[in-house]
């Protein structure tokens, strides 16, 4: 099972993502509704992947990531950003922050699992699908 920490302020989107990721049975998903909550939860979670919304009230996705990266044990965890601002320069900026992938909203929940698995394989080639 791949442990995912999903941070998203919109409850409906959290619900859809959870349903989509449950379909395959490959993922153990923990969800937080804010960056602040995620920072509290992450310590005992040790996730394999961060799935972060970009624009959130309070800490934004990139700011939350900055906090995660301060912990050496989390510095190598791959991150996927989900953004409703998918203009090319925004996407470029997210990759510069170290995103393994950027998924633009609206996203197709049916392909979400595949996209995450592809990213995991890319970052950790030994993980078997």
């Amino acid at each position: 099972m791949i442990k995912i920490l999903h941070v998203e302020d919109d409850a409906d989107i959290r619900e859809i993502a959870l349903m989509a990721l449950s379909l395959s049975g490959d993922f153990d998903v923990t969800q937080c509704e804010s960056g602040e909550d995620a920072i509290k939860a992450v310590a005992h979670l040790q996730p394999d992947l961060f799935l972060l919304d970009v624009m959130m009230p309070g800490l934004t996705g990139p700011e939350t990531l900055e906090h995660f990266r301060k912990d050496p044990s989390l510095s190598e965890v791959p991150v996927i950003f989900m953004t409703a601002r998918a203009q090319s320069n925004d996407v470029e900026w997210l990759y510069q922050l170290g995103a393994a992938q950027v998924i633009s909203k609206p996203f197709d929940p049916l392909t979400l699992s595949t996209q995450i698995m592809t990213t995991m394989q890319m970052c950790h080639p030994r993980i078997a699908v």
């Binding site: 919109d10 409906d12 989107i13 859809i16 993502a17 349903m19 989509a20 379909l23 624009m55 409703a84 601002r85 909203k105 609206p106 996203f107 197709d108 929940p109 049916l110």
Partner: peptide
């Protein structure tokens, strides 16, 4: 852009999951 896309994400996501014959 953000405010329009967020509800669209939920809307289209829900419909996509609904239409998936597997589920």
């Amino acid at each position: 852009s953000h405010e329009l896309r967020t509800p669209l994400t939920s809307l289209l996501g829900s419909l996509s999951l609904l239409s998936s014959t597997d589920a």
